[in-house]
Simulated scan of single mutants.
Amino acid sequence: MRDKQTCVDCKVTPGECVVAQHKLVVADFRFLVQAHGNKQARVARTKWWKLEGEASKVFKEKIIEEGPWNNEGDANNMWEKMATYIRKVAFEVLGVTQGSGCDSKDTWWWNEDVQKAIKEKKCYKRLYHDRCANNIEKYKVKGRDGD
């Protein structure tokens, strides 16, 4: 039933015979094309897990020295200013992820052999991002191995 709705106009051309038992058919179709976007929005996140060692010291110094800690007034406004400043310093010192739209894969159960094999097979991904001679050679070697 849905296919009938896509056909807008259909004609058989009477004088144009391609072969004796076949007639030329001309049809106009209207297809509804839907774009499927990412199901999950790409969200950049602050790399808080890097808050160790030297990065921790730099972060602490910037927060203490330059922070908006002397402001007076409404508690909500003070909180917003401090939180915004802390996020800004974290962005500068720790960095931000690019964001990921992929669902997380359940890889926690993989043993070391499986993880090693997966890393070795990701040579195409490296080749796609960086077409240097070393990556091309690795890709060709993996292709010859049949893996």
Rank of each mutant, 00 (worst) to 15 (best):
Q5M: 13
D9K: 13
C10E: 01
K11Y: 02
G15T: 13
E16I: 14
C17I: 10
C17A: 10
V19N: 11
A20N: 10
Q21N: 14
Q21V: 12
H22E: 13
L24A: 08
V26Q: 12
A27T: 10
D28Q: 10
D28N: 10
D28L: 07
F29Y: 15
R30H: 13
F31L: 15
G37K: 03
G37S: 09
N38H: 04
N38L: 09
N38V: 00
K39P: 00
K39I: 02
Q40A: 07
A41L: 07
R42D: 04
V43G: 03
V43M: 09
W48E: 11
K50Y: 04
G53I: 04
E54F: 06
A55V: 01
V58Q: 12
K62D: 05
K62W: 01
I64L: 15
E66G: 13
P68I: 02
N70K: 12
N71A: 15
E72A: 10
G73N: 08
D74Q: 01
N76I: 03
N76Y: 07
N77L: 10
M78N: 10
W79N: 06
W79H: 04
K81D: 02
A83C: 10
A83H: 09
T84Y: 14
T84H: 13
K88H: 03
K88W: 03
E92R: 02
Q98V: 06
Q98D: 15
Q98T: 08
G99R: 00
G101P: 00
C102F: 02
D103G: 06
W109K: 11
Q115P: 00
I118E: 08
I118L: 12
E120W: 03
K121Y: 05
K121N: 11
K122V: 05
Y124P: 09
R126P: 00
L127K: 09
L127N: 04
D130R: 15
D130S: 15
